[in-house]
Amino acid sequence: MNLDAPHADTAKQTNSVSHWPGVVLVGGECAAVQFGTWPSTDGRDGRATVGENCHRRRVNEFSRYKRQPMIDKIRNTLHQYAHLNRDVFTISEDADLYAYGLTSHATVNLMLGLEDAFQVEFPERMLRRRTFETIANIHESIVELTAGQPTAAS
């Protein structure tokens, strides 16, 4: 465990308890539902199911509200650290950042910037070239890391 990380406690917490009522998360995945219902945007109360389905739903609910602010924040972080040869605010979310000049050295700074901006810590399995290849990939990783963290994009 990284004891230096100022947000280590937050990260630990999101891995055990989600902000949804009654949903207990183990290792970041939804393992069991103890009680209660899911709040939903379409007015229906959908009873939560276990496992992957629950996780997917949680991510969907989350991203419906948070997507655009997160993308903007990612673009801001890219602007600060990635040193691309294109305007980061106009490139598509699927553009290959490496083709726009993202170097491995800049990737390290970008990771540090994103970790600070979103108060997350990229686990070793995400420290791959693919994770930082596009804005969409970065967004997907951060959604996974911040799922259950209501203030992540604020």
Binding site: N2, S104, H105, V108, M111, L112, E115, E121, F122, P123, E124, L127
Partner: peptide, 11 residues
């Protein structure tokens, strides 16, 4: 290069 990677690499 290793020093840079160790800024983000975990255990």
């Amino acid at each position: 290069a290793n020093a840079a990677m160790l800024l983000v690499s975990k255990d």
